[in-house]
């Protein structure tokens, strides 16, 4: 069968994203925009909350602030996500670190929210909803 004859149907279930960010206002704005784009979004405000969600809910992508307060912080959450039985895509952000330290896609803070949306759309290959 030639490649040209293959029809790719759009995925019916929207991807689930876990947004982990301890700045409540930023988490709220990012999550709200991602929901507007059609994603199912879960929110966590700390590494502990993120680990609880990762242990209980299947997610497709983790958008993670590396600068989380507390022991282990964002790096521990990223490590747990990478060791998950089901593959989870990871996009990291930080105000203090550089992307050279980590293997995953990275956004330096302060970022513009459309940058986050674009990075997630590319990672998940999930088309944006048409503009109303």
């Amino acid at each position: 069968m030639s490649a040209a004859s293959v029809t790719v149907f759009p995925r019916r279930t929207p991807p689930t994203i876990l947004v982990v960010e301890h700045d409540a206002r930023l988490r709220c704005l990012v999550s709200d925009e991602l929901r507007f784009k059609g994603y199912k979004v879960l929110e966590a405000g700390s590494a502990g909350e993120a680990l609880t969600v990762l242990g209980a809910v299947g997610i497709d992508l983790l958008f993670l602030d590396l600068d989380l307060p507390g022991e282990g912080g964002g790096l521990e959450v990223a490590r747990q996500a990478r060791s998950s039985a089901s593959p989870i895509r990871v996009i990291l952000s930080s105000r203090t670190r550089t992307g050279e330290e980590v293997p995953d896609p990275f956004l330096l803070k302060p970022y513009h929210i459309p940058e986050v949306v674009d990075a997630i759309a590319r990672s998940l290959n999930w088309p944006e909803l048409p503009e109303a």
């Binding site: 409540a24 206002r25 988490r27 709220c28 999550s31 709200d32 929901r35 879960l42 929110e43 966590a44 405000g45 700390s46 909350e49 609880t52 969600v53 209980a56 809910v57």
Partner: peptide
């Protein structure tokens, strides 16, 4: 977090727009 997730998800299914806060300080922010 899991209680917050369940009720927030239910309210969204009911058509509301929902924001989430972990505690009172986050809510005020």
């Amino acid at each position: 977090v899991l209680i917050r997730f369940v009720i927030a998800d239910y309210l969204r299914e009911c058509g509301y727009r929902v924001h989430e806060a972990v505690n009172a300080e986050e809510a005020i922010a």
